[in-house]
Amino acid sequence: MNFKEIASLALCSALALGGANQVAMAASPASDQATKAAGVQAEPNITGVWERDPFPFDDDGDETKLVPPPGGGPDLKEPYASEWKALQEKRQAMLKAGTPLVDASTQCLPEGTPGIMEAIYPIQILQNPGQITVLAELFMQTRRIYMNAPFPEPDDLAPSYYGFSSAHWEGDTLVVQTRGVQQSVKFYDIPHSDAMTVTEHYQLIGPDKLRLDVSVEDPEYLQKPYTFRWEYKRNPDYRIPEYVCDHRLDVINPDGTVSFGGAK
């Protein structure tokens, strides 16, 4: 061994020993904090293409059955509860009659929060320092979630489809809070105020299995938080294609029903 090699070996050993020392030190509470502050603790990796698992839609072949909202639906205050129930019944009746009512998806509008996470088609989550990005196949949507970001002042929080999302890690759980979803974005037709907040808890429950618990709160509209759970599995083989709604065949009639418009 020449001098250079010995020096390298010495350096490596010193570093290795130094590393070992750090690990030994990390065992004590004081340096635990130091370790965390240094950002040494690795976050669970949720980057990937995720598809719903179990696949949520009941396939009895009946295309005229209205899909109910997850988690048993919301517990709305009156008069919203009765209004919502009436609208669901109307939708169901129109579906059965073959003259369905228009909804946001007819016009390929963004699903917003929490709708985008329903992942009817797969979603791609990109986890980067400072931001988590959700890219949905459906309508090629983009949702940005900012890590440890303070919420904007109310005057600076213009209502939007996805609202403003701020996230932080609590141990192994990613906690995302969203405010500022615009009132016209109604998940399963559920009305809400500008003060609605959506809290999401994400956990990896397996190497390629993700669990999301959603809680929607809105003291003005809801008797109690509306909660439900969605689970996904990672699909490393799937490449999300484009989805641009540039060949819609649906015609929206003045009465709000949708007809087949034929080819354009």
Partner: peptide
């Protein structure tokens, strides 16, 4: 799913356009 490929999907609301057809 068994083949490790994509799942089939349906829009969130009932497939509105399909209601227009006589199943």
């Amino acid at each position: 799913l068994a083949a490790g490929l994509l799942t089939v999907s349906l829009p969130a609301m009932a497939h509105h356009s399909f209601a227009m057809f006589d199943q």
